[in-house]
Design a protein around this nucleic acid. Structure first.
Lengths: 410, 410
DNA sequence: TTAGTTTGTTTAGTAGCGGCACAAAGTCAG
DNA sequence: CTGACTTTGTGCCGCTACTAAACAAACTAA
């Protein structure tokens, strides 16, 4: 009868009024250490808003679970009075999450510990099969190999795909660059691969830009932001992501931040969506190559476009094209700012290169065309994390542990 | 020292990792009754995910606080077995929130009980002074009069203004229709008026469309939606609002959902923002009058535009104009759907009239131009609540009680 | 040394909830 | 009308995660 009640409880946990299980200080405490916001028990106490007794007990329990470590010797505090603190840090040899990423050029697998630390990486494959089950089977096999080599405990697996992932089905809606069928059941296929490989823990799947945003929010340029907007280009097309209050906002069916078809140039090129001048066809790598009149080479559109941006000072024609892209990106960002009012924007891929080519120009366009309550305009920053999609995929797998460490590991 | 710790705690409650105070079943339970989702203790038990014992105790405590009432006699359950439930309802003579609204035509004050019930209304003033302090003083005086007449306890006051309200300053950024100075410190002025009138409880201020969305989410057409988008026109201009997980999303500086300058007609009329074809100048009442070639009359733009829409079947020219507005509204909504992926859209003001004039056309445009994972497209509904901004203003004042009934009232 | 400051720990107490047994109030079958 | 069944509500006990407060530890400053 206990089981019955529990299942019924799970059945309709739709309303957020439901009390969450495992809502102790353990999860928040782990999250603070995980994101580097709790270097000592003293600040842990302050950040959690609990007593020193509780913070101490919580730290001890997390250490017993093998998730964090407390320095034996107090660290010499420079110029501060009082008893020095013992340093808290993520456990060196603790459990890891299995992170996987699939993209146009192949796939990659890695083990990621708490704190977003990449512990081990598998040499990624350079080509990609048209069959999702084949690809995901291979990437999981590479991950399983890493787990065997390192002997680490696994908390779960996460996969980043370059496509919108529909909720709640977990299907890849537009895996354009993978030659995968649209609507492939990636979440289910990945979960099956993980299970078949004998890997412990649950499996998760998400869009790569979403996961990059999550990673940047926790360990990169987005740290401390409350409403973080991330916009990035890959090889083709534009992706967006939004992190609100530390959680990804994927919308009701996983399709939020499909920003590719914002109009940024009314007289612009026709887009496959039927409109013209969409952000997608105006600011992606192909758009730059087309504007400059360069033929795509085999090295890859993104690499090629990035080199063009880097050369913009030398060639006036390139400079003009880059400025046009910056202006249109700025218009798109301004539109997003007026809708979402983020407190920080992070750019990746070609957009990052555009930002770095002329930060002032981009910031000026955004400021000119958007409402912003405070002075100085929205901060616009570049990504700072290597392999942020991979780290983000690991975040998905870590999430249950962060929410309820005892429930997930005990 | 307790006080010291508490103040320090309040000081930096930025991180969401902080454990919230008063996180018991009391608040969620009250919210369920408040939103009509807990008609009996049995469903309260199920919705909270607690035991019957707890739900019973919680209901008893809320009743003791004078917030809800439990029927003495069980209500005859139609066609169900087992012991019949006692009905839970919002207390008839419980506390109220003081709700105030300012708009172009004057102001209004009301007392609103739990469940969004308007308990008493003051006859609104029909003109409005150019000085915010004067106006807010008058509206609060009217509210205070209502409180004296009814003798009800007051939990706080809320104000709805037709302007974006900047956070955290609480200034009205664009009170265009009020002849108020831009940047007026409405929140502070309102709070002072409330305090000076000797009214108990905290004072809150918000944008009228935001508050309308909040009210519709809790008591109207938005009930049960997780990601609710609300778009409405008043007399001039377009306003938007987003309710996520039951909370208003106002963005980092209160300026989210400033959707007026989405481009919906690249060859359209120039907008004061510098662009052309903005949602604002293409779908507001003035846009319709201009398209039909009707001069504004003294009765008010919104009333006039609504009548035009109602007459659209009779006059082909009006019909054409209305269809153009519908198409452009649809484009704007589609853009928002691609960014926010809401699970429901609610329209108010002229937009509501446009929806009701030709629901199929609007739904078709939105479905055609937006991504949506499930079949049937995003549900688009009309507002259902009278005075939803007023009720929403009251929701602001009720929020502390809903979060922690004991802390706010005990 | 001694006082002051900050950190960590110990112990005792408490609020809020789960588990369980039982009571209450209806329906249904005969 | 009488039990059997079903569902709702209550009383009691105990557990868990916390707080409060006193104390101990480890440093700086004079």
């Amino acid at each position: 009868m206990n089981g019955k009640a529990a299942t019924r409880g799970e059945a309709h946990l739709s309303t957020r009024t439901r009390l969450e299980r495992g809502r102790t200080a353990l999860g928040p405490a782990l999250e603070l250490v995980h994101t580097g916001r709790a270097p000592t028990r003293a600040v842990l106490t302050a950040e959690l808003g609990v007593t020193r007794a509780t913070a101490g007990a919580v730290a001890a329990e997390l250490e017993a679970l093998g998730l964090i470590s407390v320095d034996a010797k107090p660290s010499a505090a420079a110029g501060s009075q009082g008893r020095p603190s013992h340093r808290l840090s993520v456990a060196g040899a603790g459990p890891v999450a299995l992170a996987a990423q699939v993209h146009a050029d192949g796939f990659r697998a890695a083990l990621v510990g708490l704190g977003g630390r990449i512990v081990a990486t598998a040499p990624g494959c350079e080509t990609i099969d048209a069959d999702p089950a084949q690809v995901l089977g291979s990437v999981i096999e590479a991950g399983a190999q890493l787990l065997r080599e390192t002997g680490r405990r696994c908390v779960g697996a996460g996969l980043a795909v370059p496509s919108a992932v529909a909720e709640p089905e977990g299907t890849a809606l537009n895996p354009l660059h993978l030659a995968w069928p649209a609507g492939a059941q990636v979440r289910e296929i990945f979960a099956n691969c993980v299970r078949d490989a004998g890997i412990e823990g649950p499996a998760f799947t998400g869009n790569d830009v979403n996961l990059a945003a999550l990673a940047e929010h926790r360990h990169g340029a987005g740290r401390g932001a409350r409403d973080l907007l991330c916009v990035a280009t890959g090889h083709r097309g534009v992706g967006g992501a939004l992190v609100l209050d530390g959680r990804l906002h994927t919308g009701s069916s996983g399709l939020a931040l499909e920003v590719g078809h914002l109009t940024v140039h009314p007289e612009g090129r026709p887009c496959y969506c039927g409109s013209r001048g969409c952000l997608d066809v105006e600011t992606d790598p192909m758009a730059l190559l087309a504007a400059v009149g360069v033929e795509p080479s085999p090295e890859g559109l993104l690499v090629q476009a990035r080199r063009l941006v880097a050369e913009e000072r030398a060639d006036p024609a390139v400079r003009t094209a880059v400025e046009a892209l910056i202006d249109r990106l700025g218009l798109g960002l301004a539109g997003l700012v007026n809708i979402l009012n983020p407190d920080r924007i992070i750019l990746g891929g070609l957009h990052r290169a555009l930002l770095e080519a002329d930060p002032e120009r981009l910031r000026a366009v955004v400021a000119d065309r958007s409402l912003w309550g405070r002075s100085g305009g929205v901060p616009i920053l570049a990504c700072t994390l290597d392999h942020n999609s991979l780290v983000g995929a690991a975040e998905l797998a870590w999430q249950p542990v962060l929410d309820d460490p005892l429930g997930a590991l005990g």
